[in-house]
């Protein structure tokens, strides 16, 4: 971990409540994300995973409840350039090259633009030879690599990933999932990630929270007992298979509860 940087924060959510019109997305929601760990949020579509992520990022505000990021508010962390978020679509600016997109993040975070660091990072995420290419000419996987580079260049203390590899094919997805996480693990970052894929959640995280259908509750809190760095062979380890079974069972439990609730109405 770099000495000039505050340690990664923990994230404490207390009684968070968020509704969109009549739809209750989070109804008193409590959870703590440990500092320096990667936590995956898994749950059915529309259960409120992304909403939670957006609340942490300060992109939305909760109707009530408390959210503290290492004792600070989301706005304070954002303002200090301590936060980075990646979405399912890479959301690169189409008129800027890969380099230009990464440089913009530094500028927005009010950091000096460090050309050497940018080029080094882009090479490390595997974009060698495409530094001056615009997103339109990059493949889906390459765009996600650039988006991750954009996130990491500001050396955020908090990294938020909203299905970061959701828009690419299975093979690329697995490749990105193996290659990229070591980059942010080595930086000592608190990472929260949303995913639909149980396999991806296990591969990328230290802890998995399985959420129920709306309004979200934590159904299961699973610790992933695999070493780092992760490798594809780990899929055959008992720890992997146990985690997979636990998470899948919890998801099925949630679905059954939802069906029961519907039938009861």
């Amino acid at each position: 971990m770099a000495p000039d940087r505050a340690p990664p924060p923990d994230i404490v959510c207390r009684a968070l409540d968020k509704r969109f019109g009549d739809v209750e997305v989070l109804a008193p929601f409590d959870v703590t994300f440990e500092a320096g760990k990667t936590t995956a949020l898994v749950g059915p579509s529309g259960c409120g995973k992304s909403t939670l992520l957006r609340l942490i990022a300060g992109l939305d505000t909760a109707d009530s409840g408390e959210l503290s990021i290492g004792g600070q508010t989301a706005d304070a962390v954002r303002g200090a350039g301590g936060l980075a978020i990646a979405f399912q679509d890479a959301s690169l600016l189409p008129w800027r090259t890969a380099r230009g997109n990464v440089a913009l993040a530094q500028r927005l975070a009010r950091q000096p633009v460090d050309r050497v660091a940018i080029d080094a990072l882009l090479n490390r995420v595997g974009l060698t030879g495409f530094l001056d290419t615009r997103p339109g000419a990059l493949s889906g996987g390459m765009r996600q690599r650039a988006a991750i580079a954009r996130c990491l260049i500001t050396r955020p203390r908090l990294l938020l990933l909203d299905e970061p590899f959701g828009a690419v094919d299975e093979l690329t997805r697995r490749q990105l999932g193996l290659e990229l996480p070591p980059l942010w693990r080595s930086e000592g970052t608190t990472t929260v990630m949303v995913t639909h894929s149980v396999t991806e959640a296990i591969f990328l995280s230290d802890r998995i929270l399985v959420l129920s259908p709306r309004p979200a509750r934590v159904l299961e809190d699973v610790e992933v007992r695999l070493g780092h760095p992760r490798a594809s062979e780990m899929m055959e380890q008992a720890e992997f298979i146990d985690a997979f079974k636990t998470v899948t069972a919890a998801l099925e439990r949630g679905e059954a509860q939802r069906q029961n609730a519907l039938a009861a109405q």
């Binding site: 990022a57 300060g58 979405f87 679509d89 959301s91």
Partner: peptide
């Protein structure tokens, strides 16, 4: 385009 405005927002 896309969620670019959110990305902007995430850097305040």
């Amino acid at each position: 385009p896309g969620q670019v405005l959110d990305v902007m927002d995430s850097y305040a």
